[in-house]
Design a binder for these strands. Structure first.
Lengths: 122, 122
DNA sequence: TCTTGACTGAGAGTTCACTCCAAGGCGTAG
DNA sequence: CTACGCCTTGGAGTGAACTCTCAGTCAAGA
């Protein structure tokens, strides 16, 4: 499939796809005889993974590191695992933090609710 | 307390404090006769709240709206509650999403673990 | 008196991750 | 033949949220 279709299926803009490709995030992208990029289902899987990492706040730089390791083949599996474990840990901490903030916020909202109920009731 | 001490206690840089003040996020900040800002414990509480909102991804623009409502007094409590409820909802969605991503990631890590265990074992 | 270390405001610079533009090349439909 | 709708590239522009620089002021201490 071409860039547009690919972008659509993955939920990114064609601009972003080309941008990621330029960075080297997509590895070896096949090209047609006219120079156009051509994406496969496997590319779809990979960019989906990349997209998820991005969504969880991994910096582009670190994703690039992972991509480079992946390109090197099976010998780098342990390193890749380490990167993911590190990220998973950070993500877990982030989620806990956000949850704590949400709890806090919920209490504040409850307080507002009480205040307003009191006003209405009097 | 002065800007530096205030910044330290809240976990932001003095630059950021001045920046927030310039935006109008801090409301009426008291000044000494030399023009220096002077912060109280109550300011500390407020900026702590602001800081938490920021941490949960609320755009500065929206925090500003909340700050303006707060400055208007008790008549805006319902509006403020609405802002917070809206944000809480978004935050909850965000947390769920991140948790889903984390689960995904955890599975991938488990897969790596299995692969590597297999290699070592053979 | 001079240095140090705080403060001030205006405004320029930085970082990140896109996002877009200009100029041009193919391939098909009218 | 021409218009359309894809695609290509390098490089410029954008927006958010800081972050810093500069030039100047003030107060305390050696």
């Amino acid at each position: 499939m071409n860039v547009k279709q690919f972008a659509e299926r993955v939920g990114l803009s064609p601009h972003t796809i080309r941008y990621y490709d330029k960075l080297g995030l997509l590895g070896e992208v096949r090209r047609g005889p006219n120079g156009h990029r051509y994406f496969s289902e496997r590319d779809l899987e990979w960019i989906g993974f990349v997209h998820r990492l991005r969504d969880t706040g991994m910096p582009v730089e670190q994703m690039l590191e992972y991509a480079r390791l992946r390109a090197e083949g099976d010998t780098t599996m342990a390193a890749r695992q380490a990167v993911l474990e590190c990220h998973a840990e950070a993500l877990d901490a982030h989620i806990r933090q956000q949850q704590a903030h949400l709890d806090n916020l919920t209490r504040k909202i409850a307080w507002y609710r009480q205040q307003l109920a009191g006003k209405t009731g009097s």
